[in-house]
Nucleic acid binder design. Structure first.
Lengths: 347, 347
DNA sequence: TATTAGCACTCAACTCTTTTGAGTGCTAAC
DNA sequence: GTTAGCACTCAAAAGAGTTGAGTGCTAATA
């Protein structure tokens, strides 16, 4: 059987209507709604064909049709023309904020309240190299290590001492650490390097051990992907997601930040020029989301670092709106990062 | 009417039974369950009295009784004998962790999975004074401000420069800042102080402005109470919380970290020696929780700083278990802090 | 040959009624 | 003061009927 022009028109009408109403779509509705001027009987015949081809199903005999995953997929890939007008919200969407963390939290929050879906945003993942490292003596027992990695991500580590150091000692350590570590990527810092540093530090080798533990801790932490979520409760607004168990599962998945960030990082955006990916139902990378759709976008910083934005909603989410919102948002983000770079001038 | 011994026994039996089953308790159940050896008719008479006194109600005629808020309150205050045996989980409950943040997250998580309620933990709130402040030149355009406040809470702020500074300038600033700010409580830092510093800084007054904005930002942030939550989805396990709307409201309240931490900080623990407080139904400080109970505990650090732990569950939560778990937990926390203090020696 | 009108059929959802059973309050007897 | 007994209540479950949107099929139509 062939998917001719008319069948496509009908499929599109069905999906569009279902996205709007959430109710199974009947033949008579299409007969009136579309400008095909066909009787409901003809539509019925076509619908039977579309069902056979796997694009739509009936929830039960004598009900209208709803799209299958394949139906949504076809709609998203081929039928959905995006809203081309730029959103009015643009510009006012985000206040300018300096701290990355605050900015991303806000992105998640604004996006959730704009779309009424659950949202998540990961911090950009750099190929992290150490840019600056400094130890300071806070008091006689505590040494503070501050590590700045590429992209101005700052990590602190308080190191407890059981020997007395004076400021001169600390200065020496600082020189030693910076000589070795500045510009090193986090993977470069291995046992060998540590051994070498210990050798050069002479009498302070023991303390260095202590310090190193602190620093590697901080580095590990810097490597973890931060993720911010918002709008979890929006999930409850879509009762078609079914029973409480499913909802619970979803919310649990949404609470598990680690799994979420892995999931987002795992999405591959290489082949898609806009950086936007849509996962429908079973296509989602996490079992608990198989009754939902996931839309992800990638934003990019001037340094090349990338972060992800994700939206989880029901399969009948407003894909058009979500995609266009995400596009605008990534553009705006790119803009903010570019501007903030101009202000700070070059490195 | 008087609340005699027998009425108390019956009330206790009713509450205990309802906590266990979640079903309204009938007279026949009590007649068999308790060792009073009274017929159900007698129990019925007593129950009518208890209802009149406001301790129990019938959800509808011809149903058994359930406790009112007053009934729960009486049970909690007078009838509940705590489990005195120490929990087996004690000791293994928490791995030792160095970073406060990680530790508290774990507390929330462990507590949620142990109790099956929603949990939250605030970071200890210090009377914060500046302990150490340092500016460092990360590169020509970026100045990093590191501020350590009492209790070794560290805040960073990256300050973008549009003038060139050399290391000597930075050193001057550092001396200036530390002279003025070290030991100052966060409230002390006011306009007057800033004016005075500007005067002394001479030609750099403009830059200082810039720097100050950064520092006050960081200080503000340090004053915010951090809060960690876990087990939000446990709320969905108790359908007696009623319709989806209530549940949504609850979950939303639970997502709003700011409101939550205000709420917890607002609970007054002065008159209770164990530091544990129980809020039942309407007693809870937040409207959305009026169908739940909230149990809070206070833990204490050797420096005197206090933090709160909160548990939200249905009114028919297992108060005994929750209270004893919280007691053990705060003891264990106190222990961890004491130990970590011993190791780091004194300040 | 494609389209359509017409009709019998299906089935979830709704309403209305009946049944069930746990639980009560009251009264009279112990 | 306690209890047996009984009539009464009412939510919840089960059943019966009604409705209406929607279908598939067939025969007539363009």
């Amino acid at each position: 059987m062939e998917l001719d022009e008319r069948k496509i028109t009908i499929l599109k009408a069905i999906v569009a209507n279902y996205l709007e109403t959430g109710e199974p779509v009947g033949s008579r509705t299409i007969s009136k709604y579309s400008d095909l001027n066909l009787s409901s009987a003809t539509i019925r015949n076509e619908m039977a064909d579309l069902e056979e081809m796997g694009y739509i199903v009936q929830p039960h005999t004598s009900a209208g049709r709803i799209p299958t995953d394949a139906g949504y997929r076809f709609y998203v890939d081929r039928l959905m023309e995006e809203k081309e007008e730029v959103e009015v919200t643009n510009g006012a969407l985000l206040e300018r904020v300096d701290r990355m963390e605050v900015l991303l939290k806000q992105v998640a929050r604004v996006l959730a309240s704009n779309t009424n879906y659950a949202t998540m945003v990961t911090a950009p993942n750099y190929a992290k190299t150490v840019k600056f490292i400094q130890l300071s003596l806070v008091d006689s027992a505590n040494l503070l290590a501050v590590i700045v990695v590429d992209g101005n991500i700052i990590k602190n580590q308080m190191i407890h001492l059981n020997v007395l150091l004076d400021n001169e000692d600390v200065l020496k350590f600082n020189i030693l650490l910076n000589t070795f570590l500045q510009g090193a990527s986090l993977e470069d810092i291995n046992l060998e390097m540590i051994q070498e540093m210990k050798k050069q530090s002479g009498e302070y080798a023991d303390i260095l051990d202590h310090i190193f533990t602190g620093i590697t801790d901080a580095i590990h932490e810097a490597q973890e992907v931060d993720i911010y979520t918002s709008g979890a409760t929006n999930i409850l607004k879509y009762p078609e997601l079914g029973d409480i168990e499913k909802t619970t599962g979803l919310l649990e998945a949404f609470e598990d930040k680690e799994e979420l960030s892995h999931m987002l990082e795992g999405t591959d955006d290489s082949e898609n020029d806009s950086g936007i990916q849509i996962f429908i139902g079973e296509e989602t990378p996490v079992q608990n989301m198989k009754d939902c759709s996931l839309v992800t976008a990638t934003y990019q910083m001037p340094e090349g670092a990338k972060g992800k934005i994700g939206i989880i909603g029901p399969k009948r989410m407003d894909y058009k709106k979500v995609v266009s919102t995400l596009k605008n948002l990534t553009i705006e983000l790119d803009d903010i990062f570019k501007k903030s770079r101009e202000v700070t001038s070059d490195e």
